[in-house]
Amino acid sequence: YIDLISHQFVKRQWNHLSLGPSCIRLNQSAIRPRKQQEVLIKKEHKNIDQKVVHHLTSQPNNIPLKSRILKTYSDDLLNYFNHSYFSPLTYKNEIQALEQARTALSIRRKLKKSNLILRVTDKGHNFYIGSAIEFDKKVQKFFQDTNAFVILEENPFNEILDKVIHLLNRLYGKKLILRWQYNKMMPDRTKSELAHLYFNPKTHKDGIPVRPIENTMR
Rank of each mutant, 00 (worst) to 15 (best):
L40R: 14
I41A: 11
K42G: 15
K42V: 10
K42A: 15
E44H: 15
E44F: 14
H45Y: 10
H45Q: 13
K46Q: 13
I48W: 09
I48N: 08
D49Q: 14
Q50E: 15
Q50W: 08
Q50F: 09
K51C: 10
K51G: 06
V52Y: 09
V53Y: 00
V53D: 00
H54W: 03
Q59G: 05
N61I: 02
N62P: 02
L65E: 06
L65R: 04
K66Y: 03
K66H: 04
S67W: 00
I69A: 06
I69H: 03
L70P: 01
L70C: 03
K71A: 04
K71C: 02
K71L: 05
K71G: 04
T72W: 07
S74N: 08
S74A: 14
N79R: 15
N79T: 11
N79H: 14
Y80A: 13
Y80L: 15
Y80R: 13
Y80V: 12
F81P: 02
H83L: 09
S87H: 11
P88W: 11
P88R: 12
P88M: 10
P88K: 12
L89G: 05
Y91Q: 14
Y91L: 13
K92I: 14
E94C: 14
E94F: 12
E94A: 15
I95C: 15
I95V: 15
Q96D: 13
A97Q: 07
A97H: 07
A97T: 07
L98R: 10
Q100K: 03
L105S: 02
S106I: 05
R108N: 08
K110A: 11
K112S: 11
K112Q: 11
S114K: 14
S114F: 12
N115L: 12
L118F: 01
R119I: 08
V120A: 07
V120H: 04
T121L: 11
D122I: 08
I129M: 14
I129A: 10
A132V: 12
I133D: 13
E134P: 06
D136P: 01
V139F: 02
Q140F: 02
K141P: 01
F142D: 02
F143R: 05
N147T: 06
N147S: 08
A148T: 09
F149M: 06
F149R: 05
F149Q: 04
V150Y: 10
I151W: 05
N155F: 13
P156V: 09
P156N: 11
I160M: 07
I160C: 07
I160N: 04
L161P: 03
L161T: 07
L161K: 05
K163T: 07
K163S: 08
V164W: 00
V164I: 10
H166M: 07
H166F: 10
H166Y: 10
L167P: 00
L168V: 01
L168W: 02
N169K: 03
N169L: 03
L171C: 03
L171I: 00
Y172C: 00
Y172N: 00
